[in-house]
Write a protein that binds this DNA or RNA. Structure first.
Lengths: 238, 238
DNA sequence: GCAAAAGTGTTTTAGCTACACCCATGT
DNA sequence: ACATGGGTGTAGCTAAAACACTTTTGC
């Protein structure tokens, strides 16, 4: 693809996953505990090496299934960035990683899949705290993916990917509040979301959860973008 | 970074560039004519292979300098996506490309740099036309990068990267009109841009171009995002 | 004077904020 | 009854759209 034939470089490629979900109002990410060096015993993002006949997107989907037991077809999975610092892996001097943001509802059990090591949910806040450590440059990768998620909530309808097939407006509001770390005005949120074209579709059914009036159930609409965008108004945290 | 040691795969990596600029009101991209197989004689995006001691960001910057003679330090350069289809390069069965969006003012001559083949500006509209062809999957890469640029104009201040160090509000409006392919209301655009905090800063100077009242000159401000975002109202094309 | 682009003013309307208030359920 | 979350109404404000109008140059 270029004339610089003299110094081509062969490298290893991995797809690493930042799987996000909401559990009890907190943004969580799926991490595994490493059992090999380097960084044995430390927390890391799940991921794995590219194989011969697949695209990176497929690698990401496969690893998601293998390492976490989740179904990649059912959740939002998108490329975020490439990490290519020559020294990011102390062993081999060169491993390039493409990171993926995956958004999952809370339903699937956080526990491991078939051949997986132990995988578990940890709050993002804890892993991004100044003192926290993750293997490799995974803290940076996590931060970038979370930032991407925060931005996407504003202009796209991905927030529904955090919810089950049927959800209430309150569920959806919790997603925004957890990801953005703000408290939103309930009445205004309700209007904005139900008025937005193709964001949510009423199913007619209702869900009656502990305490309070039963909430109408919705499913995700066809639209992928919201215009005008959802506004992330700064207020005090819950 | 994962247990799948059995089927690791070594691959070639390139950084390919989508260098955009505005020339006489039209969005242009920098392309080179290939002189080697495959796709000899066809148009392609400039780019080149990753070397041992650099990050991909550095590869992109280096290729920009080598192939186009531009100064990478002075212009906006950002990662867009990774293309990893095993069959995207007919020769070697596996070349992974990371694409970069570069935004340049019109000033630098489009002509080639030192060791470069002939590089030239072509309108994006022409290359994305249904009948148009580009080498490899570069048409797709171009389309994705242009789409990224369109989105970024809404929420960020990158539009100034298309302009010289000093520019008029009219120059900036031309950028939006060329990239979005819409006509914007001149008075409203002026207010929106000058009122937005940190988007543009008046230099006090004026520029008197052919015909019309002299325009005040501005330079790019500190802000990186615009809130509320620039709105891309659908109207008829010029 | 006239054309052309820069820039200001003004009216109308959409949409957001804030907050009061009613609704339907469990305990 | 009352706590709890769901949902509607509404007044006030901000900013965008549309367009009339003034300003300052070249010819």
């Amino acid at each position: 693809m270029s004339p610089a034939h003299r110094s081509r470089l062969l490298t290893h490629i991995t797809a690493d996953l930042v799987v996000l979900t909401i559990r009890s109002g907190q943004l969580h990410v799926l991490v595994v505990e490493r059992d090999n060096e380097p960084f044995a015993g430390q927390l890391a993002l799940p991921g794995g090496f590219l194989r011969g006949d697949e695209t990176l997107d497929r690698t990401a989907a496969r690893e998601l299934r293998e390492e976490t037991g989740m179904d990649p077809g059912s959740l939002h999975l998108e490329q975020v960035g490439v990490y290519s610092d020559p020294d990011r892996d102390p062993r081999v001097r060169r491993v390039i990683t493409c990171s993926y943001l995956a958004i999952a509802p809370n339903l699937p059990v956080p526990t491991a899949g078939s051949d997986a090591r132990e995988a578990r949910w940890v709050t993002v806040a804890r892993l991004l705290a100044p003192r926290a450590r993750l293997a490799f440059d995974h803290k940076r990768i996590l931060a970038d993916a979370v930032e991407r998620a925060r931005e996407k909530l504003q202009f796209s309808t991905v927030a529904t990917a955090f919810c089950d097939a049927e959800f209430t407006i309150g569920d959806l509001r919790e997603v925004y509040e957890a990801v953005w770390g703000v408290e939103l005005d309930r009445p205004n949120f309700h209007r904005k979301v139900t008025d937005a074209d193709g964001f949510v579709v009423s199913t007619g059914r209702k869900r009656t959860s502990a305490g309070g009036r039963p909430a109408s159930l919705y499913r995700a609409g066809d639209a992928e973008t919201i215009s005008p965008p959802m506004m992330r108004t700064p207020r005090a945290r819950k």
